[in-house]
Design a protein around this nucleic acid. Structure first.
Lengths: 362, 362
DNA sequence: TCCTCGTTCTGAACCGTTACGGTCAGCACA
DNA sequence: TGTGCTGACCGTAACGGTTCAGAACGAGGA
């Protein structure tokens, strides 16, 4: 059926004895030619197996690709593994399908510097989801002459941003724990930079973290607990490069081994917190009686586990990012959208046991 | 920084006083020009804010887009809502990132006939995930001169396919239920055609279903139960257009209202089965004592719920589809991959209560 | 000295389409 | 009979690259 060399608009025009413009119009502007001729064009197209104008050639000419690019920190497949990312993507997909735009997931490897995938994505704009501020892929995106919206991080001068108030959100959580009486805390956080550092994170590393979100959460915790009389320099912070429950387990184990006195484990994501819960269970620690554990994100699994956490509107973030990018609004000055978060009081937080209880039982 | 009119390869060449070929080579074939000149080219590019060759123009010339298109039955955002679809996508994403290919999600609306999104996707090939055999989008995909792989359904002459043996898989499950003694069964199934029919599905509708997978599962059930002496014409089959747990609940309610005598509810997906479980719970029916419920897919939620189901390797399906499309293998003759399934015996299946038990308690 | 060869760069064709500014016939109207 | 308008179609010039066959030139070998 298919000719050896696939039919083109030009070959169709030649076959019909009309100009290419006319064939093009048959597809794109039916009112520009007589119904009869249009019928003949489409009919001949079918006969020759011409599938309609080539999308790439059209994109070149019209300067529209009909798709939005998505860049994320992780391997492409990670997008389908992390519930928070999935929620974000669903929201973004909603915005895209509403505008008839495709969603082009850019295949990047966070441990490589190769940015060709960014350069070869035929898209009309980019959404960048939670990448480090020194990510070369981000730089590649920004160098392209298309609009860009960043979600969560980093904050870049002159670039639209959708996010939450990380500082305020986690300060609220910290306030709660302080109110309960916790002073011996430990923190489990996600990667702070592009280099892998699975272990304790020094204050210097915390302060210079290339992930703005993690930096903000840590500094908010530091502020809150310092204000409550805690010496932040003595608060153990364990970092994990991979964002999985397994990481949460090993991080919790590492922290509890080194600091058995902690009464509360604050995790900067629900995934890590779920891992910590598993580790606590393995150690025979009763949560929250022996140990308080908190998360961040508000994913469904966390809710099922009764985790005390901060719920953030992940789907709404995706939708907002999409709308910002695709909306008719003016791109002249950078816009910033901050969505609301909510403290979810689950069953994994309680006042700390007293020292006596720790030694002699409740 | 950006010039009013963005720099192009030609403007860069003019600025440097070299040919466009040379600039092109600076990016694509570094060995074709002196290191010194190449340095100057890249340096000037940076100065002029030239982001490198335009991906669309390059695609036009090289006839490669560097992306794989994905077409699915549902709204784009559905891909992130159904766990089975998510698993499939993760597998597909793994294959894509392995080959450095992007993943272009095509925005379609299953209730509309508009196929322009398919025609305007700049991709090197398509993966089609579980669509009806008369889907106009599928026709549009097949008309395009790019390789295509179908996952699950439909089977199209001459097109690569990745799937499972639906007939054998569900026959195994049916055999199990028959062995347990079930003869009064009911079936909850997903949509059988593109038109919405939320209610009982006649035999005619079952036989002419446009979704091969559902058709195969129903016919396998019919064969198995007919062989066990059950008159399939009397077996209630309830269909739902939307694939959600809510649909499962209402479908179960509708079926149990009309046929309170059924002892087993066979669902063609875990999602529907989870809904049925919820409905059974609401009615005070004990599962499996009062009612056996089975699913299909083997998603994580089902495992947690202890559902008796058929586990199919969703991630592997995605990966296989991607490999088939991207692999160097010859596309000369159609290939077919059938993956293994496994019967998972959960805690939602048991022998039926006797009639006496039904009336007088256990 | 002449020929060959490799390196470095160029010119022109081509990828398939759409935007833009026409042309031209036919018709109504004064 | 000339004028202006409209509907239907066309020609050309991009769009921004890549590719391929050579040209120009200096170096090395016989």
């Amino acid at each position: 059926m298919h000719a050896r060399r696939p039919a083109t608009l030009a070959s169709l025009a030649a076959e019909l004895g009309v100009s290419r413009t006319t064939v093009s119009n048959a597809y794109n502007r039916p009112d520009q030619l007589s119904p009869e001729l249009r019928r003949r064009v489409l009919e001949t197209a079918r006969r020759l197996g011409y599938p309609g104008p080539d999308p790439v050639a059209r994109s070149l000419r019209t300067r529209k690709a009909g798709a939005v690019g998505l860049l994320l920190t992780e391997n492409l497949s990670y997008a389908f593994r992390d519930p928070a990312a999935i929620g974000f993507l669903e929201g973004l997909a909603l915005a895209c399908e509403g505008a008839g735009q495709g969603l082009h997931l850019v295949p990047v490897n966070p441990e490589r510097e190769d940015v060709t995938a960014v350069h070869s994505a035929g898209v009309d704009g980019f959404v960048v989801y939670s990448v480090p501020d020194d990510d070369p892929h981000l730089a590649a995106v920004l160098s392209r002459p298309v609009p860009t919206v960043v979600c969560d991080q980093p904050r870049v001068e002159g670039v639209d941003l959708v996010g939450i108030d990380d500082h305020a959100a986690i300060a609220q959580l910290a306030g709660r724990l302080i109110g309960l009486g916790h002073r011996n805390i430990g923190v489990l956080c996600m990667r702070l930079a592009r280099d892998r550092n699975d272990g304790f994170a020094s204050i210097a590393r915390q302060r210079t973290a290339h992930f703005h979100v993690q930096r903000a959460r840590l500094s908010a915790l530091a502020d809150s607990f310092e204000a409550a009389g805690v010496d932040w320099a003595r608060v153990p912070v364990v970092e994990r490069f991979d964002h999985t429950t397994t990481s949460g387990e090993s991080a919790a184990a590492q922290l509890l081994d080194a600091n058995p006195e902690v009464t509360a484990l604050i995790c900067t994501s629900d995934i890590l917190a779920l891992g910590a819960l598993a580790e606590a269970r393995r150690r025979g620690l009763r949560v929250p009686h022996d140990l308080t554990i908190t998360g961040f994100d508000g994913i469904a699994e966390a809710e099922r586990a009764g985790l005390t956490t901060i719920r953030q509107p992940v789907l709404e973030k995706g939708r907002a990012a999409g709308k910002l990018l695709l909306g008719a609004a003016d791109h002249s000055r950078p816009r910033q959208i901050t969505l609301d978060t909510e403290l979810v009081l689950g069953s994994t937080s309680a006042p700390p046991r007293t020292t006596e209880e720790r030694w002699f039982g409740p």
